[in-house]
Simulated scan of single mutants.
Amino acid sequence: MGTELADILDAAAQGHFPAPDGGVTVVPQPSSRDAGVVAFTAHSVVFTDENPVWVRRILASLDCDPLAAAMNPAFLRALLDRTRRAMDTIDLLTVASPLAGEPPLDLTEVGNADHPRRIRAGKRRDELRVWAADGGIVILGRGVAGRWETAIEVDEGHRGRGLGRALAAAARHLVPDGQPVWAQQAAGNARSVRAFQAAGFRPVGAEALLTESGGAGRGGPVSST
């Protein structure tokens, strides 16, 4: 397994995961912006610039199943207090391979979009690009450890028609350089989870992203960050 978060994520995108040994790997933050936890099957990765000795001491002190310790609320609370950061939800982390050809719907790229979804995404991702469709938008940008991430949003009047699935599928055609594209969905956002899985995104784990103070919150019920 790689020793940097980007290496671990790249391997996971190809279907190669940390050994399901109940362990926790602690790696440095890939940037000053991004810290948090990714939980794979029976193995978690904590990415933080805090002392690994402190991380392991807190984990060992918890009265809980060791397999779930890194996502235990007590550990996340301690990490938030230690780093003076904030978080929203624990997300389902999904990934999809790129697809050749044009997206399955008409899109228009827009610059300097003032859509609230773009504003929120701009606080967590770099190199943002935004496309508008009739009734929704799709966003691509570089997020955690430089990975390409997508977010979508469907307008209220266009929900229930498969547009979310089409927007998520479009991201697979739009991602540059033949790279995989990642997406996070709040676990309770069933519409978003269904849309991304129908578009070919496969679950790889869970992610708790710790944001710097003032970070943006989650969107509506058919959106994905």
Rank of each mutant, 00 (worst) to 15 (best):
L99K: 06
V55F: 04
R118A: 15
W54M: 07
D65A: 12
D81I: 01
R124V: 10
R120A: 15
A69S: 15
A68I: 06
V53G: 11
D126G: 04
D63E: 15
E102N: 06
H115Y: 09
M87G: 02
S97R: 11
R120D: 15
L67A: 13
R120E: 12
A74L: 11
L107S: 02
I139L: 15
M87V: 01
P73Q: 06
G122P: 04
D63Y: 04
E50S: 13
H115E: 14
N72Q: 13
E127S: 13
A113L: 14
A145Y: 08
A78K: 07
A78T: 04
K123P: 04
L99W: 04
D126M: 08
L76M: 10
L99R: 11
V53M: 08
I58V: 15
A78I: 01
R124C: 06
D106P: 02
D88Y: 02
G111P: 01
G135H: 09
I58W: 03
A74R: 11
L107P: 03
P103F: 03
M87C: 05
A70V: 10
A145L: 11
R124I: 10
R85Y: 05
A132Q: 14
P66V: 09
R57Y: 00
G122C: 09
L62Y: 09
P98H: 00
R142T: 11
V53T: 14
T48F: 07
G122K: 03
A96I: 04
R77S: 14
L76I: 14
A113W: 06
C64A: 15
I90K: 04
L93D: 03
A68W: 06
V130Q: 07
L67P: 04
E102P: 00
I119G: 02
R129F: 00
L80Q: 13
P52M: 05
F47N: 00
N112W: 11
P98E: 00
L93Q: 07
F47Q: 03
A78Y: 00
